[in-house]
């Protein structure tokens, strides 16, 4: 069996989500990767990768030629894998359409070469599914697979040509507008720091900012904090707000009402800081600190 992983490159480095996909692909035997545009060198240094296929003329910003190329080279592979990112979810299902297979998105666990676990109903249930397709097209949830390291491998790099790209009926990229805010978007942030009613007012809510800056974190809020006017509604994390699953979630002065937990319980590591040892947030936190947030926050800021 051989797996092919579509890599995403950011600033010359392989994105962490893609490195998780490479780690997951290891379950299927030999791992090749495909790089569109720049970044083949970084890809070649990933441990566990045998071959880097490099299509320099293409870009992962356009699904139509990318999927067409993948379909062209798919026949040598049993599994074609991407990260469950906006890019992966744009390209891989299109590839599945070209191959006439049913894609398996958001895989969180691999039971065997045909059997996968994926969340349904916004993570309220986990389905174990078996695929009968000869080529499995899969996207991988990064949070569930430890990424391979960025360095340590020495794969060969082979250029692949895709001459038919100009004949694909494709959209055209006009402009890219990466978020200029220093802070990442809540839903895609690697780290989220959220505040609750314990912050007492909108002014204190700003205490989260310097820590968020140091961690490159997005800032969230509980519904109670939003309802009290400490933070705007778009910051609300929870059942009625945004659902997040970052690597690290820091809950500050929020009790952990069940509506809030529903929006963040899939985070990989949860830290809770609250004065009330009975707060429900401690029942889901990996690390808890019963302390006054007004002394903890400045300490944390200087310790980071």
């Amino acid at each position: 069996m051989t797996a092919l992983v579509l890599l995403e490159i950011e600033n010359g480095a392989v994105r962490q989500a893609s490195r998780s996909a490479v780690a997951a692909a290891g379950a299927f035997g030999t791992v090749d990767v495909l790089v569109l545009g720049h970044g083949a060198e970084a890809a070649a240094r990933l441990p566990g990768v045998t071959r880097v296929l490099h299509a320099e003329a293409l870009s992962d910003a356009l699904a139509e030629p990318a999927a067409a190329l993948l379909a062209d080279i798919a026949s040598g592979y049993t599994h074609i894998i991407g990260a469950a990112t906006a890019t992966g979810k744009n390209i891989l299902p299109r590839l599945a359409g070209l191959l006439d297979v049913q894609p398996i998105p958001d895989v969180i666990a691999i039971n065997d070469a045909d059997t996968f676990i994926r969340p349904i109903y916004a993570g309220n249930a986990l389905a174990t599914v078996r695929s009968s397709d000869s080529i499995k097209v899969i996207t991988i949830r990064g949070a569930n697979f430890d990424p391979v390291a960025s360095e340590g491998g020495a794969a060969t790099v082979e250029a692949v040509a895709f001459n038919a790209a100009s004949q694909v009926n494709a959209a055209e990229l006009l402009s890219v507008n990466l978020s200029t805010s220093e802070r990442p978007e809540l839903e895609s942030a690697r780290v989220v720091i959220s505040g609750g009613k314990g912050l007492k007012d909108a002014e204190n809510f700003k205490l989260l900012e310097p820590i968020a800056d140091k961690l490159g974190a997005a800032i969230g809020a509980s519904r109670a904090a939003v309802d009290s006017g400490f933070a705007p509604n778009e910051m609300q994390v929870g059942q009625t707000g945004k659902i997040v699953a970052p690597e690290l979630y820091i809950a500050v002065g929020l009790s952990g009402a069940i509506q809030h937990l529903a929006g963040m319980k899939d985070s990989r590591v949860i830290v809770a800081i609250n004065l009330d040892p009975e707060a429900p947030i401690f029942r889901v936190a990996d690390y808890g600190l019963v302390a006054d947030l007004f002394t903890v926050l400045p300490e944390l800021e200087s310790a980071l």
Binding site: N233, T240, A257, I258, Q259, A262, P280
Partner: peptide
């Protein structure tokens, strides 16, 4: 149970 986890099971929502 507590009240908040109870209300969760009523499926209650209002346009916010």
């Amino acid at each position: 149970f507590d009240r908040v986890s109870s209300v969760f099971l009523s499926g209650t929502n209002h346009e916010e």
